[in-house]
Amino acid sequence: MGDTDTMERGEIAPEDIMRAQVYDLLGALLRDSPSKDLLTKLTALEGDATPMGEAILALSKIAKSTGVEKASREFHDLFVGLGRGELLPYASYYMTGFLNEKPLAKLRNDMARLQIARAPSVYEPEDNIGSLCEMMAGLILGRFGPPADLTTQKDFFATHISPWAGHFFSDLEGAEYSLLYTPVGTVGARFIEIEKEAFRMTE
């Protein structure tokens, strides 16, 4: 997969690759508890004095003092729990108050249209934030076929992410159990704002 990514990146604008990378980063952190490898990579992140840079820097700093065990426990408390975790990171839940509601059905239609399939071994509903970030990155970089044009990206974002993701990331920032995930929430919230603003400019 990595090779096709690089090959196709030639035609994709650098700022779009940057967007995809932020989506991938968020996706990797929200899909599963971070591996040792991912934590090590986080510690290498650098940021400048912009709001986004500061949030990234905070994430990098906290990653330095977080071990795999600790990260895994935090991920568990936040998203898994016994019965449920502190947060329910699903579009359907945030948009309707219930899991597996209309937003999930709508997403499945769009996934079929965009030729995105769920891996056969995954049973979690597709409208979780990690998968949605992964799908955005895939659309931008063309992992599901040719890279999606801006209108397609914008529609997908506006329907499935924009209405609730900012709210979710703020919740993550302020969650009782979040420590490593506090700056993840900050990065996410700021990035969603940037995306909203940028898509507004294409109107």
């Binding site: 991938d24 990797a28 991912l38 990579k41 992140l45 650098e46 400048d48 995954v122 998968s131």
Partner: peptide
């Protein structure tokens, strides 16, 4: 997005496995 550095995020991208 200049504050978000490309280098390490790029490495992270490699871990993507299309929905876990």
């Amino acid at each position: 997005t200049v504050g978000a550095p490309a280098l390490a995020a790029a490495a992270v991208a490699g871990s993507s496995k299309a929905m876990a």
